[in-house]
């Protein structure tokens, strides 16, 4: 049994947003304003003209952190949000009552209401689309031109992600909340 996570060389991101398009295409996410499983945040350049710090402008690809201690799972009244066998945070649409408590509880804004199923949707690391078909990469990873994303098994010491995390310094988002996220930003 694997424990999937993702490392992001975010400094290589060029904000082309091919990942956003690939995710929507692969997972059939609707083309509506609030409908996105992943996104690229923009940290704008700091300073006043002419002293603008070019280096301070960075892009931050992000998505569900697949927390090991997920607040969204904890607050779900019907256990519709659950931990999958590979440690991923999943949603069972049959049990979801659309109380949207999980959207309130998620510190990462990773959840939204899917207008097709009228349940709360989120990133699944393409488990029901690509991984189920035998692929070993997610759509966002496969399409990335600058190889920002590295997806893999955190419990396998030989996996690319484990090797990367063993050799590089990284940081995580809002880890002070005790969520134990599984997205790692390589610095």
């Amino acid at each position: 049994m694997a424990r999937y996570g993702m490392a992001l060389n975010y400094k290589s991101c060029i904000n082309c947003r091919a990942c956003e398009s690939a995710c929507k295409e692969e997972n059939g996410v609707l083309l509506l304003k609030d409908h996105y499983r992943i996104w690229v945040g923009v940290k704008e350049a700091e300073g006043e003209f002419p002293n603008i710090s070019i280096a301070s402008q960075t892009y931050h690809p992000s998505q569900c952190q697949h927390c090991s201690n997920a607040p969204c799972q904890m607050v779900c009244p019907t256990n519709a949000t659950y931990y999958g066998t590979d440690g991923m945070v999943m949603v069972d649409p049959v049990k979801c009552i659309l109380c949207t408590y999980c959207i309130n509880a998620c510190p990462y804004d990773a959840r939204y209401v899917d207008q097709r199923t009228m349940t709360v949707d989120k990133c699944t690391f393409c488990s029901d689309t690509r991984l189920a078909a035998g692929e070993t990469t997610t759509a966002c990873q496969a399409t990335c031109p600058t190889k920002v994303r590295v997806f893999g098994d955190l419990d396998d010491p030989k996996s690319e992600i484990s090797q990367l995390l063993a050799n590089k310094e990284y940081r995580q988002v809002k880890e002070h909340l005790g969520t134990k996220p599984k997205l790692f930003y390589i610095v």
Binding site: G41, K43, H60, P61, Y108, V173
Partner: peptide, 8 residues
């Protein structure tokens, strides 16, 4: 919830 979305 501006998680890395400084200017979404």
């Amino acid at each position: 919830m501006t998680t890395l979305k400084r200017a979404e």
